[in-house]
Each structure stands twice: as C-alpha cells, then as structure tokens.
Design a protein around this nucleic acid. Structure first.
Length: 409
RNA sequence: GUAGCCGUAGCUCAAUUGGUAGAGCCCCGCAUUGUGGUUGCGGUUGUUGUGGGUUCGAGUCCCAUCGGUUACCCCA
C-alpha cells in the first residue's frame, strides 16, 4: 500500500516476526554481561556535539557524518554516533569512579551516522558493547574478549575470526605512521592507483588494501610491534597467554592499526568469513588516556562494540511459531461480559490467549485456530464449549470448570 | 560524497518491436469432507515509487526526483 509517508533514508522498521530475533539477541547480551558482573548503562540519544568532535578522531570527518543541528538556543546538538564517549562522559560526570574503582558497564542502543546506506550499514543502527574502567592489567583485556566470544558463541555464530594487535601509545603510532609513509613512498610506483592516493590522505589504509598489486609490498611493510616499548610487549604477550588458556583462537594481525585517535595498546576485531566488505562484527580495544583527556581522573579502560544488524545477518535463527494456548470465540454480544471475565481469569493464570474480536463465524474460527497450532478453543455463548483441537475432545463446561478442563488435557 | 543496477497487488514475480495491467501465495466469504492441516466455487487489493517530457497511445523510451541495492570513499 502506498503510504503518504515513508521512512527516512537509511532507517528501517523491525516487524514481527523478526522482532523475535532482536529480543533473542538482546536477552543473551543481558544475560552474559550480567554473568560477568557488568551493569547496564543508558545515556541520552542527544549530546553536545563537542563530545564527539573533540574525542573521537578526525574532526571534519566525524562531524560530516553526524546528524547534528543547532537548537533554539543556538546550542550544537548531535545524535550519538557511538557510545564510548557518552559512557566516559557519564562515568566522569556522575563521579562513579569514586565508588567503584573497577567499573564495568554494558549497553544496547541505537546510534546515528549520516553515511550512505549499504548492506549492514544503516543511518540508524544498533550496537551493544561493554566498557571496563579502572585497570590496565591484561586480564581485563582478555575478559572483554571472552565476553564478546561468549555472546557470539551463544548466538551460534560460527566461522568468526579474532584479530588482535597492539598499537602502543600515540607516540608509537605517529612514529610508525611516518615510517610507513617513507616505506610506501619508496615503493610508490608499484602501488595500485587507489593506494597511491591513499598515501597522501591516509597511509595506514593501504594496509587494508584488497588490490592484488599491493599484496607483496604490504607483506614487507614495517610492523608496529617492533616499535613497542618493553612494557607493552609484555602486556601483549600475557594477554595472548590468557587467550591460549581459554582456548580462544586468535590471529595476530600486525596490520590492525587503523581506528580512532583514542585507542592505544590492545586492539581487536572479530570478523566473519562471509563475503562483502561489511564483515566486521565487533571491534574494540584499550583507551587508557580518554578519561583523563575528557577531564576525569587518570583511568585506564578497555571495551568493545558490536553491530547487531551484522550479527543478525550471520545468526540465521529459526523463528518460533506463535505460542498461543487458547483461542477465544465470543461472538454473541449478550455474553461479551462473560467472555471478558473468562479471558481475564485465563491471563491471571498465565495462559496466552487469542481473542477473535473480528467475530468470524465459528467454523472459520476453528480453521483459524487449527492453522495456528492452537490447542484449546473456548466458544462462549449462552453455554461454554471447551474444545481440545488435538484430541478433538469437546465438552460443555461452566465458567468455573474451564481451568480444570485446560489442566486435565 | 562518486558510479552501476533496480522500483508492477500485502509477498514472489509475469506483461512480445510502445497497443485493454495479469498469475501464484496470502487474506475474506460460501459450499464440501467425519464441524478441523482436504477439495471446489466466488471475492477484495494497483494513479506500475513520484513529477515532468516524447507519442494517436508509455509499466516499457527520455529527463528530474525519492527510495532500495552493489562497488568506491569512509568506517567511531
């Protein structure tokens, strides 16, 4: 049907029965996070635009892709494009760190980015994620990865690939970036056309290149791990040891270096092997300096975020049928009050009912009930007929006998 | 932001070189079967995404626009 209105570009409705899939994922996230003693945080959909501009990364790129506007008092507002900055803001603003030296939070929420929509990439999209503040120990990095691993496992997502790297501090990174630039410049003529333009704008992107001619050059590129401090190397090694102990398979990926300005030390990403460029399910890492940069006390932190839309593309879950216990037919207006009283009692006793307020004729109601796999049917008129649609038993009952009839079958 | 492809009933799709917009499923009703996953008959649903243009005539050709999709850019 043609609607007078249509949804905004890059947004989508989640309709039944697909809502079941979303509920399923959300319940698993809640459950696993709580098992690890992470607590849920919810923050506003809108924030001051500076929160993101200043703290996420390249200022112009970031603001270009945000939904932002000036409100009536000329204040610049943005719909949140991600959750780390709002969580850190709330963490500092609430003084939470005073009560909880080790603060562990998780969220499930919608975010907004004004990008061109693609498969698995919408303008309003949904993520869940966790953030742990207060320790720089490698056990916390490993626990974060374990949570992501457990959630994906419970969602029955197979063929995932965990890539891990350590990118050191921002000093290391800028050193590495210039080293990389020099290296690629030396091999400029052999690089693909695309990568030659990247060389000026974003040399680290070349490491992700899919062009064949770039492969060999990338393989011999300098590695960031060689520039790491002794401390960082130890941290990295012990985290990998924890993962080994857990039997979690990983890939050391020295090229996993791009990302936000605020990341340091551990970074990781979980991808699937299915095709297409949008294959990252989950990404995260350490951001030990962000809390301090945003005006809080010096607090190390680590976390991840996972895209629910992409996970749904991977988790091909079977939809369960509607689970209705009792089909109610009450077509005679004279007995509507009686019908409603029965319905109310069934609900209070935990039954799921379907009341045909359309008042189709009884024959078609029976067909309807059978088609929907409903076991019991109550036909309420002057008398009440209770039917078991499977055993085909049928009985005329009084109002007080209904519950017994349902139990006995 | 750039480029390619696509848009017909609630869904899946037809419609010859431009010539009366259709089918299946779903839904609704009637009958039939042993009142129940059967079968038969009948019925509803469209400004062919929207707006212009060419033409005697446009779902079909042209332009614009909106939306979807794929690749690039980017990816918090």
């Amino acid at each position: 049907m043609k609607s007078k209105y249509q949804k905004i570009k890059g947004t989508f409705d989640i309709l039944p029965p697909e809502t079941q899939v979303w509920q399923h994922i959300e319940s698993i996230v809640h459950k696993i996070c709580k098992q690890f003693s992470f607590e849920e945080i919810r923050t506003p959909a809108i924030e001051s635009i500076d929160l993101f501009k200043r703290n996420i990364g390249n200022e112009t790129d970031v603001s270009k892709e945000m939904f932002a506007w000036k409100d009536q008092s000329e204040k610049e507002i943005a719909l949140k494009p991600e959750m780390t900055a709002p969580v850190v803001r709330a963490y500092i603003e609430s003084g939470f760190f005073r009560k909880h030296p080790l603060c562990r939070l998780y969220y499930i929420d919608s975010f907004f980015r004004r990008e061109k929509p693609q498969k698995g990439r919408q303008r309003q999209f949904n993520q869940f994620g966790v953030e742990a503040f207060g320790t720089k120990n490698s056990e916390q990095d490993a626990e974060i990865i374990l949570i992501a691993h457990q959630i994906l496992k419970k969602l029955n997502i197979k063929n995932t690939n965990l890539s891990i790297n350590n990118i050191g501090d921002s000093d290391t990174r800028s050193k590495y970036e210039s080293k990389l630039k020099t290296y690629f410049n030396d091999h400029k003529n052999n690089l693909s056309q695309l990568s030659q333009t990247r060389l000026e704008k974003n040399p680290m992107r070349i490491l992700d290149s899919k062009e064949k001619e770039d492969e060999a050059i990338i393989q011999n590129a300098p590695l960031i791990i060689d520039l790491l401090s002794k401390e960082e190397k130890t941290h990295f090694k012990s985290m990998l040891k924890h993962l080994d102990a857990l039997g979690i398979k990983y890939n050391e990926n020295p090229y996993l270096v791009r990302g936000l300005d605020y990341y340091n030390s551990t970074t990781f990403e979980i991808t699937t092997q299915s095709q297409g460029s949008q294959n990252a399910l989950c990404g995260g890492g350490r951001y030990d300096l962000l809390v301090e940069k945003m005006g809080g006390p010096k607090t190390p932190a680590v976390g991840f975020a996972a895209g629910i839309e992409r996970i749904i593309l991977e988790a091909k879950q079977e939809l369960s049928q509607k689970n209705i216990d009792v089909y109610i037919s009450c077509n005679n207006e004279e007995y509507t009050a009686k019908g409603f009283n029965i319905i109310n009692e069934l609900i209070e006793n935990g039954y799921t009912i379907f009341f045909d307020t359309n008042k189709k004729n009884v024959k078609n109601q029976i067909k309807d009930a059978v088609k929907n796999n409903i076991t019991f049917m109550l036909i309420i008129d002057e008398a009440i007929t209770a039917k078991n649609l499977i055993s085909k038993k049928e009985k005329s009952v009084s109002e007080s006998e209904i519950l017994n009839f349902l139990k006995d079958q």
